[in-house]
Amino acid sequence: MGKMLEVQNLNVHYGSIHAIKDISLEVNEGEIVSLIGANGAGKTTTLHTITGIKKATSGSIKLYDQDLTAIEPHKIITLGMAHVPEGRHIFAEMTVEENLEMGAFWLKGKTNVSQEIEKVYERFPRLKERYRQPAGTLSGGEQQMLAIGRAIMSKPKIMLMDEPSMGLSPLLVREIFNIIQELNRSGMTILLVEQNAKMALSIAHRAYVLETGEIVMKGKAEDMLQDDNVRKAYLGA
């Protein structure tokens, strides 16, 4: 298991607000690593900084030894990193199929798009049923599947997922987490940001706990599930 993504001493500011305070984390090949924490702890900011949407004040972000901080945000995907953003951010007025095609945008015909789309449909048959519908007409769960499918289309090695369970019913949450596990089993490395700590820890290999911009705990996910502090603060037990 080689090191894939490595964040070192990252600091991020919003104006004078110090949102991310000197955090370091790493994701190894084949892992699901979960970043948990309360609302406003800086989870989304961390992901945004990794994919270049938000600029870091200092620190380094490396994907296979390549420094990401100096790369334009739209080129990140070409390095094999896909970001499934919080709130899904699908293109609501485009059809389901066009959304998937956008996932393969950077590949510029270097891939057989229709074949890749078929693979996504096999994974998510409900998307196939609705392939000509505007994506905005899909239900929340279907939109999340579309967002994940769109990310798969870009053929990433690592996927950053931001709150994939947000706003979904318990049944759908389970379904989405099953999908994430399946993806991982088929070889995808995943950095998962979640408020639903229990679910996140139950599928992750390792986890980091983020509190007001600082990493206050890290370790194996199964150990954290047993940890009294984590249980009190995040698992409601």
Partner: peptide, 8 residues
């Protein structure tokens, strides 16, 4: 923002 993430 989403378009940027797609490489646009």
């Amino acid at each position: 923002q989403a378009a940027t993430l797609m490489g646009v």
